[in-house]
């Protein structure tokens, strides 16, 4: 895997736990075109080329309840990339340069 990829990917690892986590993953899939989802014990790995966005509205629609972006802290295990934006409406992970 030492060969460089043309577009640097970013990603998050999430707990494979509650329905909440499942819906967050589904929301990510809905809002990001080329995500790759893979599974490790207890863990779901979501990778996306270039950028990954988590939108509050999509998560709320899937959960059927209000969801604040801070709640993402309850499902995140790790990430790579840079958190470019984290506000009331969305979280964006990307590399800056």
């Amino acid at each position: 895997m030492t060969t460089g990829t043309p577009v640097k990917s970013v990603g998050v690892e999430l707990q494979e736990s509650s329905d909440d986590a499942r819906m967050v993953i589904e929301a990510i899939q809905r809002d990001n075109a080329d995500v790759v989802v893979s599974y490790l014990p207890g863990l779901v790995k979501v990778q996306s080329p270039g950028e990954l966005v988590i939108r509050r509205e999509t998560v709320e629609e899937l959960l059927g309840r209000p969801w604040e972006t801070h709640e993402f802290q309850l499902v995140i295990v790790s990430y790579y990339g840079h958190i470019g934006e984290w506000d009331d409406d969305q979280i964006v992970i990307k590399w800056d340069h």
């Binding site: 895997m1 030492t2 460089g4 640097k8 970013v10 790579y80 590399w95 800056d96 340069h97």
Partner: peptide, 11 residues
């Protein structure tokens, strides 16, 4: 290698 060398350090 993938996440740090090919991601972070490129950044």
């Amino acid at each position: 290698e993938e996440q740090m060398l090919n991601g972070l350090f490129k950044d």
